[in-house]
Design a binder for these strands. Sequence first.
RNA 1: GGCCCUAUCAUCUAAUUGGUUAGGAUACUGCCCUCUCAAGGCAGGUGCACGGGUUCGAAUCCCGUUAGGGCUACCA
Length: 443
Amino acid sequence: MTTRVRFAPSPTGLLHIGGARTALFNWLYARHTGGKFILRIEDTDAARNTQEAVDIIMRGFKWLGIDWDEGPEVGGPYAPYYQSQRGELYKKAVQTLMDKGLAYEHEGAIKFKLPKKKIVVPDLVIGNVEFDYTVENDLVIVRSDGSPVFHLVNVIDDLEMKITHVIRGEEHLSNTPKHLALFEALGATPPQYAHIPIILNSDGSKMSKRDERPEFARWASMQTYIDDGYAPEALRNYLCLLGWSPKDDREIVPIEEVIKLYDLPQIVRHNARFSEEKLHWINGRYLLEIITLERFVELGLPFLEKAGLVDASTDRTYITRVLAIVKEKVKLFGDLPAWTTAFFREEVTLDPEAVEKTLKKPNALERLAQLAAAYEALAEWTVPKLEETLKALSQTHGVKTGEYIHPARVACSGKSVGPSLYHMLEVLGKDRVLKRLRAVKLS
RNA sequence: GGCCCUAUCAUCUAAUUGGUUAGGAUACUGCCCUCUCAAGGCAGGUGCACGGGUUCGAAUCCCGUUAGGGCUACCA
């Protein structure tokens, strides 16, 4: 039997990082088993749900590299995939329950008779969990305004869509006996359940977009990672490692490898805290050695455009050359403009601290003048020639190469830190370098 | 309050499922490398929440305590 899993978000205006991880775990399981991953929109609250909110969710998944086999945009055999359009199905199910005498009207609402017994939830991650329902009150399944509640629609949709495995956050564990009872009442075999631990803030509190502490609230939303400039594959890698591990000490794991190794029983049972530091480290590794230059340019370009450093008319080859030399430095695409401004603007802004540290040292201006003169005579503007010339110059004057390198870096880039000087000079080009070496004046 | 889940370094996790000097990674510290900053290499400290059992032997099994999280809605 083909595995069918689903993620059923409520469109609230943002994609929660915890939800994204739950979706990722579902997706991984579908891909691991060769099954289907279904996206279903739980837009029961018509007032606050908009198409824009649905788009935010879909955009987030596409960005993360999570594709769905059935759902909005792609359709599927169990359409529609919006709960707001499945009202008839729910009505029919409620009628069935009432006909069977398992549901009844009470003060305008419709209640489901929960069986008064012990209910065992067989969970693929946690194991069997027993709940005592002998004292439980009956469950409202249709509100007095006629709208069906979450528990009912969730069960009906999972049933109708032939979902085989429900992989969801652990916060749903206590609700599962109700769902099991509903399946039983409908005469259906329930899916298998797997409740996964949730992601907490670094201080152990619950991740919420409503957190009063902005530094915590921001990590709850997928948009933060997109805006900050994380590589999707890096975030995805990090998310995989929160509650799961390849068990062989690897931290950087290609997604194909995760798909191969991933399985439900191996999911860790306790909640995990989110660590910005580790995510940042993983992202740095991806930018440095995992993603290609082409991918780096693809992901970085929007950040350069947003900063107004490049536009459609900017020479693409030049952009690629610039990014090639800063690729090893950048940890986050949001930092890209800071690393590259000097390459895309005619005028350099000298960092005051860098000026203080290097350009104000005795002889610094003299060194710049000497270097400019030597470079002016260069016929061939290449890294080896630039290096050779600078070294020869420092030897002639009996000083360390740093005497030239440091002031030159500041004069040409405005900053005291950056990639290899010679590579920067090569990309900047002779005219600009000479101009900048000679433009430095101390006030 | 009641019910449920969970518990290995500060954090994410591993331990062939009872026998290890409890491993790796992030972060931190020191050294090396180096044109700066990173990266990289090497080294280092930090942990089985606590208390009882079971057993020749427990991070691993059982019970309790404590702590964290969840559910307890005509929210999802």
